[in-house]
Amino acid sequence: MEAKRKRFGRNDLLLVAGLLLLGVALTLALGVNRRDGREVVVRVDGEIVARLSLSEERELPIEIDGRIANRLQIADGAVRMIEADCPDKLCVRKGAVRYVGDGIVCLPHRVVVEVAGEDELGLDAVAG
């Protein structure tokens, strides 16, 4: 062990570069079809609790365990979480999202907010 002074060789570089490339490829594959969303699907614990149009400005309080745990706001064709009573507030910090497939997640409350396009509507209805 002591004899091995070299700590990062050619193989290591290849492995790390390969993983990095794979990440870039996945990112591109996921981000290729950026389309403005039509509606917002709100799920708590995997169950759909609300479907809202992205073109209609409004706020939605999300109730969990009998209290309002999160608050959503739809404005200018985008949706954002404006309130959360969890300690990290990552969902609030995520900011506004507007593209199909994009979304906001509040892991501690198991809230998933997803932006959907028009065609997803029918698919979701069948799958759900």
Binding site: G23, T27, R43, G103, V105, R110, E114
Partner: peptide, 17 residues
């Protein structure tokens, strides 16, 4: 799996890097 959604794939790039 737990949240039953593909939507989390959006976090993949950040978590990957």
């Amino acid at each position: 799996l737990l949240l039953d959604t593909w939507q989390l794939a959006g976090y993949l790039p950040v978590l990957w890097i």
